Amino acid sequence: MAAAVGAAEILRLRLSAHRIENPSGVELSVVDVTRQLFALQGQDFIQGGWALGVRAPGSRLSDLIAALDAGTIVRSAPFRGTLFFLPAEELRWVLGVTAPRTIAGSATRQRQLGLDEAILDRARAATIAALQGGKALARDEYFALLRSIDIDPSAQRGYHVIWHLAQTGLICWGPASGTQQALVLLDEWVSTSRDLSGDEALRELALRYFTGHGPATLRDFAWWAKLTLASARTGLALAADDLVELEHGGESYWASAREIDLASGRRRSTAVHALPGFDEYLLGYTDRSLPLDDEHFARIVPGSNGIFLPMIVAGGRIVGTWRRAEKSGGVTVTPDAFGDLTTRETAAFALSRDAFARFRTS
């Protein structure tokens, strides 16, 4: 029978699984973090980078850039058509699970943009010719390539071409230059890949999600990976021997048995963290009500425009937002709490704020 737990316990376990609070105390690298969480949303390069940095204390943006340049971490769009950072060796088999449904769901948008199969095939051939042999193209250079073969990249067409070719496993974002990356051929850039398919791939996907995000529900997993409920249920059933079922509010939550053991004995967190916008701690779930009150959701996504602001997290709860400003003298961070922070919380937030400034500027 599933053990009943409260919301505070779910958040305590999530902080641990996310490695926002590290239960082992072992120092983590940015590569270690991607292997733990499996995939972290990264459409904003700096915010996505800090999602890794906040979980790998002492790391720098230069550590992420080195991992990207080495092809150890890769940035692509394997889930929901959104950019993620993930271990390079995992990308191909994940696309094998998620891309067919994602591509099929893009057919209407593809027609709206006037991109038929003949145009996409032409883009594919030109892309291979331009990139093969270890070459790389920055975004603007790639758009110029599209223009040279009479494909207009304006009005989001160029981005959709990149997205489509990434979904089909032809390209990914490779070497970094500042906060930008160049496009490369996936088969040339990533030399080693795990070979998983079918039920084995569904099992691995479920296990990795619930390990890095648990406790979470079946619907959370299906939404995150953009799977049908039937496929998500199959993956969960195949991974169940390595998972623990918990119950909250009449619903089943699943977490890694190993992660439950790691977090055992740890008290509820009183720490304060400056998490980035788009962080998996909030966006990794379809139900976001446990860490965030509904009345404050509009403060996280002003104007409901899809842009999630950086978050202040205290004791597992989202209690405010923060903004960064970058000037020649460095980075400044300004908090905007939903209510008054205590003196202790203000001091604790300052530590995380300073850690972000070091990560960004070093």
Rank of each mutant, 00 (worst) to 15 (best):
A4P: 01
A7V: 15
L13Q: 13
L15Q: 13
R19G: 04
R19Q: 03
F38C: 05
Q43G: 06
W50G: 02
G53C: 09
G53H: 12
S62W: 00
L68W: 04
D69L: 08
G71C: 07
I73T: 10
R75I: 10
R75L: 12
L83M: 14
F84L: 00
A88Q: 05
E89P: 00
E90Y: 07
V94Q: 06
V94P: 10
L95C: 08
T102W: 09
T102Y: 13
T108L: 14
D116F: 08
E117P: 00
A118V: 14
I119W: 01
D121V: 04
A126K: 04
G133N: 05
K135E: 08
K135I: 00
A136P: 00
D140K: 12
L146K: 05
I149Q: 08
A155E: 15
G158E: 04
I162P: 04
W163R: 11
W163Y: 12
H164V: 01
L165D: 12
W173F: 15
W173Y: 13
G178L: 05
G178N: 08
T179G: 01
Q181K: 07
L183I: 15
L183Y: 09
V184H: 04
L186T: 03
W189G: 03
W189N: 09
D195L: 08
S197F: 02
L202M: 09
T211H: 12
T217S: 15
K226A: 13
L227A: 11
S231W: 00
S231N: 14
G235C: 08
V244R: 10
H248Q: 13
W254S: 09
I260Y: 06
G265P: 05
V272C: 14
A274H: 08
G277D: 12
T286D: 09
R288M: 10
S289Q: 11
L290S: 06
D293C: 02
I300V: 15
I300D: 08
V301S: 06
G303M: 02
M311V: 02
V313Q: 02
G316P: 00
T321M: 04
W322A: 11
R323M: 11
P335Q: 10
P335I: 03
D336V: 09
D336R: 07
T343I: 14
A348G: 00
F349L: 15
A350R: 11
L351K: 15
L351D: 03
D354N: 14
A355F: 03
